[in-house]
Design a binder for these strands. Structure first.
Length: 884
RNA sequence: GGGCGCGUAGCUCAGCGGUAGAGCACUGCCUUCACACGGCAGGGGUCCCAAGUUCGAACCUUGGCGCGCCCA
């Protein structure tokens, strides 16, 4: 076997590894095109701890389709790639590894721990980037970035310092979402609210002056240890006399005021509500309205949510050190004993959980760094309103606006060791100096001031929000930045519009003056075949690498592309992947067939000249297909892109064109043969080009198998969609040919004519044009319709199958073989179908309002259709009469 | 409670004003010289329900019913 001969079986694994290595080594992903128009995508950076899952497979396939398409169209296509340092996730992974050796993070110095993380990153941080290569992603690996590398860290420091100087970053004492497992603050977005079965405890709070008592209810009784007030609604008459009096809390004996506040819901419980400003977001606001400043708010938890003494020292020692759960038990028991517990009811409650830790989040009063998101959100919203950035599908704009309009200050400090340490230093008096580095901070603080750096790090999303420009070199004014920013499209899941897209918009506009991309394409989630969300805990995840091993990366990519219909979730059924693997095999075999007849690499970019209808038709179909593909990409209709290419390659090219040219290839007419081989070679090349963005491996392999090439397919020119080559007369002739063959095949099949039987074909009432067409296409009709001789002479007497098509009737004598009843039934069925339609069309045309108001061309079309259908019905009835 | 979205063939989904399509599954025939991971032919749908707009509605409007997601 020569090295160009296509093997009988298609083995994706061999091809994939070979071509990916070749592309990467030859720099094919980033050809030097200094003068070309840029096309730029930044990858949503996967977590450095991660491994490839189906969501990545979808997201990156779509990006690669766009990048490869634009690269073939001659653009200077750049796909910026890299990973995200994933603060909490990475710290967890490394801590777990250390724990296996019996070492705790807190046993070592911070710098030492950071070294361990970097070591881990060197060792296993590349997992996902290796896996992206297996998918075929044509990223620019030569410029691979990491959110913690020097350049990106520099960008982070600059952004922090600048925002601080502009007053858009500030330090504040307020309640945060505290994760007691990881012992860090987290942002609102990292909290998920879950419905859980809880309880509602009703307790009696006596008045301090002994004049009575009131009842309060709570889902978290243990927080009464830090209660600072009881609130009632200002309009609630029941409590009017009590407002301003003091309550003496059970257990602590703390005396707290009864205040009025709109927050108290008269309908809920007794209408009186306990206020714990240090441990509840609503109560924090009520407390502030009641005049309690945050610094005075009582705190009863340590960083692990264990009970600590409040500043007034009133919590009994027995409670100190207890967990939230144990404290609740002990407290409820004590209340019950003293008779202060009235009743307990079951209730579904909404409880906050950390999305990574899975533990209940504690609202906790701490000093943290905040971004003034409200200010940054304004231009970010304006950019979408003005159309500078548009969402596809557009419906996500509503989600974006909805969130942006109600945006809260963004807590960006995290009590972790892994991440960008906040560039802020404090002097002995607690004054803060924000600067790019220690020296600059010292200059600000003045000589001699003893400075300590803030130990906290920044939220990972703070640095990934800079990704579209920090990866291109910002804050330096690099050529890359100049040419490739703003980027073109961001392709991502709708689930991180808030986390990431919104933040890139805010930071991008603030620091570059321009929105980071003109289009945000949001896709859905990849779900299991039954529609369930894939999750490790359910055990229903599908590993993309396993799929690639089994069916090939091209099949997986094709599936992802074909199923992506603008944001709808994808229910992934493995049979679908199998189907597209079959498509790859089909393409492989079509190329083998072509090669077997001496069809090879096309010599021209433009379509070869052609005289036969079939050749001119397939050229036109190719152009039409390319136009449809261009349209699909322009509208981000990935499903339509894949479907169009699939149907062209399989239905048009394999099932019709290759079958129609077999008689020519096997025939004697050398000129016709040469023309056909040239056209077939050209069309096959265009198919490889058109499929390359979706199926890069098999197409590149076949591209080279078909003959010597001046360049790899990855750099081939996209099909020139020049409408000049679409020839209507050839299209009409071949459409007629296909209809005729189809009609003959149908009747043969319905009449149970043995598949192999070759039967003569008689034609009556043929027009001159039909006769000419029959003459030109005899060999094809004979082969594909299993005919033997086509004659305009009258058919012999006796039973026959009759096919009505256009003005002519085609007769296949089946004397002695035909089942007359079956043929009568067939013709009757067809006649009735036509008559039913005639009736419906006549109904419409008979309505004067239709003629009056419908578009004229619709009326004309309808009239033409009526004429056709009537003629068809007449001929079918005539055929029935002849049958007797 | 606020917002978004979805109900079309057995399954998964396109279509979103001119009278219903695809893939898979299903049925029959074919070991036809590229391919059985194939070829040919075929069956299958009150387009969730109701009312309205329109010459005409799966498509637009309103209201139901069912399901999902996001934010409180």
């Amino acid at each position: 076997m020569t090295d160009r001969e296509i093997p009988k079986t298609f083995d994706p694994a061999d091809i994939e590894s070979r071509w990916y290595a070749h592309w990467e080594e030859s720099g094919a992903f980033r050809p030097d095109r200094p003068d070309a128009e840029p096309f730029t995508i930044v990858i949503p950076p996967p977590n450095v701890t991660g491994s490839l899952h189906m969501g990545h497979a979808l997201d990156n396939t779509l990006q690669d389709v766009l990048i490869r398409y634009q690269r073939m169209r001659g653009r200077d296509a750049l796909w910026v790639v890299g990973t995200d340092h994933a603060g909490i996730a990475t710290q967890m992974v490394v801590e777990r590894r250390l724990a296996a050796d019996g070492v705790k993070r807190t046993d070592m110095m911070r710098a030492e721990f950071e070294t361990k993380v970097w070591d881990w990153k060197e060792e296993s941080g590349g997992t996902i980037t290796t896996q992206l290569r297996r998918l075929g992603a044509s990223c620019d690996w030569s410029n691979e970035r990491f959110t913690m590398d020097d350049g990106l860290s520099k960008a982070v420091r600059k952004v922090f310092v600048d925002l601080y100087d502009k007053g858009l970053i500030y330090r504040d004492k307020r309640l945060v979402n505290w994760d007691p497992k990881f012992k860090t603050a987290i942002s609102d977005l990292e909290v998920e609210t879950r419905e859980v079965n809880g309880r509602f405890w009703h307790m009696t709070y006596p008045l301090a002056d002994g004049s009575g008592a009131l009842s309060v209810a709570t889902t978290r009784p243990e927080t009464m240890l830090a209660d600072m007030a009881v609130a009632v609604h200002p309009d609630d008459d029941r409590y009017r006399a009590m407002v301003g009096k003091m309550v003496k809390l059970p257990i602590t004996g703390r005396e707290i005021p009864i205040v009025t506040d709109e927050h108290a819901d008269p309908e809920l419980g007794s209408g009186a509500v306990k206020i714990t400003p240090g441990h509840d977001f609503n109560d924090f606001d009520v407390g502030k309205r009641a005049g309690i400043v945050p610094a005075d708010m009582l705190n009863m938890f340590d960083d692990e949510a264990r009970i600590v003494q409040t500043s007034d020292g009133l919590i009994p020692n027995a409670y100190l050190g207890l967990s939230r759960e144990d404290a609740r038990k002990a407290l409820v028991a004590e209340l019950e004993e003293t008779g202060a517990l009235e009743r307990v009811e079951d209730r579904t409650i909404q409880a906050p959980y950390g999305d990574r830790s899975g533990v209940v989040i504690e609202p906790w009063l701490t000093d943290q760094w905040y971004v003034d998101a409200e200010t940054l959100a304004k231009p970010a919203m304006a950019a979408v309103r003005s159309g500078e950035t548009k969402f596809v599908p557009a419906t996500w704009e509503k989600t974006y606006f909805n969130w942006m309009e109600n945006i809260q200050p963004w807590c960006i400090s995290r009590q972790l060791w892994w991440g960008h340490q906040i560039p802020a230093w404090y002097d002995a008096d607690g004054n803060v100096f924000v600067a790019d580095d220690a020296e600059a901070a010292q200059r600000k603080a003045g000589e001699g001031a003893a400075l300590t750096r803030d130990p906290d790090v920044l939220d990972t999303w703070f640095s990934s929000g800079l990704w579209p420009f920090s990866t291109l070199g910002w804050p330096d004014e690099t050529a890359m930045l100049e040419k490739h920013y703003p980027t073109d499209v961001l392709v991502t899941g709708f689930d991180i519009i808030f986390f990431w897209v919104a933040r890139m918009m805010m930071q991008g506009i603030e620091f570059t003056g321009k929105a980071p991309f003109h289009t945000v394409y949001c896709h859905g989630l990849v779900r299991a075949a039954d529609g369930q969300k894939m999750s490790k805990s359910k055990g229903n995840t599908v590993d993309p690498l396993g799929i690639i091993d089994k069916y090939g990366a091209d099949a997986l990519r094709f599936t992802m592309t074909a199923m992506e219909s603008q944001g709808r979730d994808i229910k992934l059924d493995e049979r679908r992947i199998e189907g597209y693997r079959n498509f790859a095999t089909k393409l492989w075999n079509a190329a083998r067939f072509a090669q077997g007849y001496g069809i090879g690499a096309s010599q021209t970019y433009a379509p070869p000249s052609a005289t036969s209808a079939v050749n001119r038709w397939i050229i036109g179909e190719t152009i039409r297909t390319a136009q449809a593909l261009d349209g699909a990409i322009a509208e981000y209709r990935f499903d339509s892109f894949a479907g169009t290419a699939y149907h062209f390659a399989w239905d048009r090219f394999c099932d019709w064109y290759l079958e129609l040219i077999k008689p020519v290839l096997q025939g004697e007419d050398e000129a016709a043969k040469e023309e056909t081989k040239a056209v077939a070679g050209w069309v096959l090349d265009q198919i490889l080009v058109m499929l390359h963005p979706v199926m890069p491996f098999i197409t590149e392999e076949l591209w080279h198998k078909m003959g010597p090439r001046p360049y790899d397919l990855i750099h081939a020119k996209w099909v020139a969609a020049d409408a000049h080559h679409v020839e209507e007369d050839a299209a009409r002739e071949v459409d007629w040919l296909i209809d005729l063959i189809g009609a003959i095949r149908s009747s043969r099949s319905e009449l149970n004519v043995p598949a192999g039987a070759k039967l003569p074909l008689h034609v009556r009432d043929a027009s001159a044009e039909t006769a000419a067409r029959l003459g030109r296409n005899t060999a094809m009709i004979e082969r594909l319709a299993r005919a033997e001789g086509i004659s305009t002479a009258a058919a012999p007497e006796g039973g026959s199958a009759q096919i009505v098509l256009g003005e002519a009737t085609y007769i296949i004598p089946l004397e002695g073989v035909i089942d007359l009843a079956a043929e009568r039934a067939r013709l009757t069925k067809n006649a009735e179908a036509a008559e039913k339609e005639i009736k419906s069309i006549e109904g419409r045309l008979g309505n004067p309002k239709f003629r009056e108001k419908a578009k004229p061309e619709v009326v004309v079309e309808t009239e033409e259709k009526l004429v056709e259908r009537k003629a068809e019905a007449e001929r079918l009835r005539a055929a029935l009469t002849r049958l007797g």
